[in-house]
């Protein structure tokens, strides 16, 4: 199967799973924004999702996408490290047109994975997981208020968001490039689009975190 045994195929798997996860982030960020506009509305969304079958299907799908994305990241990294040969360069220099993020996607991925673990413990384990186990989940709005009233949580989340921003600025345009949707004219355009998209998503997430930290101070 070409998706496993050809380099372009493996990259297609990477880009399709990655792009799907970006769409999820967009959904998640829009949902979070409701927490600022209307706390009651946010609780309604939490209730609507909860542990209903569609939310569970979505969660399993997401977990699957994330696992494939991470698994392929490791496989590709090991293969690429081997392709470099046994000896490393003594002197390396950076090229002006090469983004820092593009060379550090794996490192950024580790930071993001760490952030996901913290985030799942903070929210998912107290909401959907509790509901799956048959108990009554904690209130989403209260969790947000409590979590972001702690300055260290805000700091952790902001570092996480920064890593996501860097990961997305390369990931979004790169996924389009891998699918072949690029040419000389569109190259600067899709790079610009992916910067805007990444900034938008990260700003939406960060605004909720900062908003509730500021609220807790007042």
């Amino acid at each position: 199967m070409w998706l496993f045994n050809s380099s372009v195929g493996r990259k297609v798997v990477m880009c399709v799973t990655g792009a799907s996860l970006v769409l999820f982030l967009l959904f998640h960020a829009s949902m979070n924004l409701v927490a600022i506009i209307s706390p009651e509305g946010y609780d309604m969304i939490c209730e609507f999702l909860g542990a209903n079958w569609y939310a569970l299907v979505g969660t399993v799908g997401l977990a699957g996408l994330a696992v494939i994305h991470i698994l392929y990241a490791f496989i590709l990294s090991v293969q690429n490290y081997r392709a470099r040969g046994n000896a490393r360069y003594e002197v390396t220099d950076r090229q002006e047109s090469v983004e820092w993020a593009s060379k550090n996607m794996l490192v950024l991925g580790f930071i993001i994975l760490g952030g996901i673990c913290v985030h799942l413990i903070h929210f998912w384990a107290k909401m959907q997981l509790v509901e799956i186990l048959g108990a009554i989940p904690e209130n989403g709005m209260e969790l947000i208020r409590y979590t972001f009233s702690q300055w260290y949580n805000l700091a952790i989340y902001l570092v996480w968001f920064a890593a996501i921003w860097f990961h997305l600025t390369h990931g979004i345009w790169s996924s389009m490039h891998t699918l072949g949707w690029n040419n000389n004219i569109w190259m600067p355009r899709i790079k610009c689009i992916s910067n805007i998209f990444a900034t938008l998503i990260v700003l939406m997430f960060a605004s909720v975190a900062i908003y509730y930290f500021v609220i807790s101070l007042i």
């Binding site: 493996r10 990259k11 081997r82 490039h177």
Partner: peptide
């Protein structure tokens, strides 16, 4: 290319820059 042991492209763009 894959058979000969070249790596997988991650679109860093270092190739075109050099």
């Amino acid at each position: 290319m894959d058979e000969l042991g070249f790596g997988n492209c991650t679109n860093t763009g270092a190739c075109a820059a050099e």
